[in-house]
Nucleic acid binder design. Structure first.
Lengths: 296, 296
DNA sequence: GTTTTTGATATCCTGAAGATATCATTCAGG
DNA sequence: CCTGAATGATATCTTCAGGATATCAAAAAC
């Protein structure tokens, strides 16, 4: 018994006329008669009574009609569900993002567009630092990562979403907090530093180290912390200075002042990272929309 | 998409191994791979990830697995339901019977056996006089009729279940009620008669008329009634005598006495009647069991 | 009685499903 | 790093079920 057989039977049961049913099915009448006959033989019972040039359903046929319709409807539904997932109109999209990402308008705007265009996709946002996005991306637990620059395994691919300057984070009461003018990394490095611990897993730490090392500077770290909000709080309390991407300017805290950095290479990026192959359609659509948001 | 495709997919999803799944399905591996590939193309989405020599289900695949199992289970169920009806193990059996039939042990015994052997058949008993069984039998509203002799249209076929003598029904207080010895039809015909009206539709009336006519007798009908119980009641009240099959001896009513008839041809029959063709399996089984009960 | 309708039957053909052989990739183990 | 086993994909051929065409048979309509 195949779905085709059921479709044929339902057509005959609905038309109660082999020739019309065959026409509706787009086949000729003889094979239809044969298929129904074969179905009855397989089931071991009559489904239709052909008598007095009239076709009628038996009791078994009535029952089987209901069941057949149900089976066909479920099969149809299964097919549609998967098709929708396959076309990215449904299913799931799991995105990892770092703390700083929601501070820029790009991600919120993209999410809004995506949700409008694909309202049936179950969108799951996971706040994770850059390092902690890598394994989930490799293992298929995350479809897309939005992160700071990091060294990626070859299975992952990335492109830059945002380029932004770094800014000095200084206490407003301190010496450096007296002005808003650009500051050099060298000047900043004279102060005690508050920064991420390696365990925080952010790509910013690597950048930070490289920037100062290139200039032969070794800032004195007075406190290693886990997240950017802690950095800003500790700067507010006067513990030291720090260096963060410009996005964090959006965080206004008393006694904290942001000053531009005059060094041209003191810049950071936000990456969109994804498995190099095996991109889900949902992820493809999301990337499409991000790119439109950047371009437009 | 066909049920075969779903069976193949479920096998692969359960084994997570194409070769093993193919072995389980009794086909070779290449066609299985092709079928799954074709299924994915038809659905427009990946169901399985073949990576690192390991096969895994995608999210869509997980969903489709559930759906496919459901569809297969329902198809299986539909098939089993109809098979059971086709084999007569389930479904419906509608039997018509006349008032006198339950008085003999044959029908109750047969019904008990039938119910034991086919407990899932929905057995519907309809008390109907012989005439009123004919149309339902012709139109398929009744599968089997158990009735008194009647003239049947050619589409119906019948055989005799029971042969029994007729007995005189007399009032115990009356002249004829004084003895239990056999009585002749001629003697009985001297008395006022209580009998069925033609509208009652019983085959007994025809027999009654023939029996007396053959002997040149014309009993005086004092009352025409609709059913045998009324006959016996009226005989009990002294209105007249009557003539009924021996089965009615089982009805014991004060002041009613049954006396044998000495005429050898004063006998009646109970027929099992059914459509000559189109016997349902349920009806066939019932007839089988009736015949066993008669033989045994 | 003749014609029309309609499902069944007979026969042939096509294409999809399956078999066999082979390839490509990957991972295990030395 | 190399070799061989494991495993899914690909290529090609074969077979048979499903379908088409032609025809028949029975019943109903005129």
């Amino acid at each position: 018994m195949e779905l085709r057989t059921l479709r044929y039977f339902v057509a005959v049961a609905e038309e109660l006329h082999f020739s019309r049913a065959a026409a509706r099915l787009g086949i000729s009448q003889p094979p239809l008669s044969q298929q129904i006959k074969a179905l009855e033989e397989e089931l071991g019972g009559r489904l239709l009574v052909r008598t007095n040039r009239r076709v009628a359903l038996t009791a078994a046929g009535e029952l089987f009609l209901d069941e057949a319709r149900e089976v066909l409807a479920r099969a149809e539904r299964a097919s549609r569900l998967v098709s929708r997932i396959g076309r990215g109109e449904s299913g799931q999209l799991r995105i990892g993002f770092t703390t700083s990402v929601p501070l820029t308008p790009l991600l919120p705007r993209t999410l809004t567009h995506y949700r409008q265009r694909y309202p049936d996709v179950d969108l799951r946002m996971h706040e994770l630092n850059s390092q902690r996005q890598i394994n989930p991306l490799l293992e298929g637990d995350l479809d897309i990562g939005i992160m700071r620059p990091a060294t990626l395994p070859p299975e992952l691919s990335a492109f830059t979403l945002i380029r932004e300057p770094l800014v000095a984070v200084v206490n407003a009461q301190s010496e450096l907090g007296a002005s808003d003018t650009p500051l050099s990394l060298a000047e900043l490095a004279t102060q005690p530093f508050v920064y991420f611990s390696p365990a925080a897993g952010t790509g910013l730490l690597d950048q930070f180290n490289v920037l100062f090392a290139q200039r032969g500077l070794t800032p004195r770290l007075v406190q290693e912390v886990g997240g950017p909000n802690t950095i800003i709080s500790l700067v507010a309390s006067g513990l030291g200075v720090s260096l963060l991407p410009e996005s964090f300017r959006h965080i206004h805290i008393d006694n904290v002042r942001y000053r531009p950095i005059s060094d041209a290479d003191a810049r950071s990026e936000v990456w969109l990272t994804h498995p190099r192959h095996h991109l889900t359609p949902q992820a493809q659509h999301f990337i499409q929309i991000v790119c439109e948001a950047i371009a437009g």
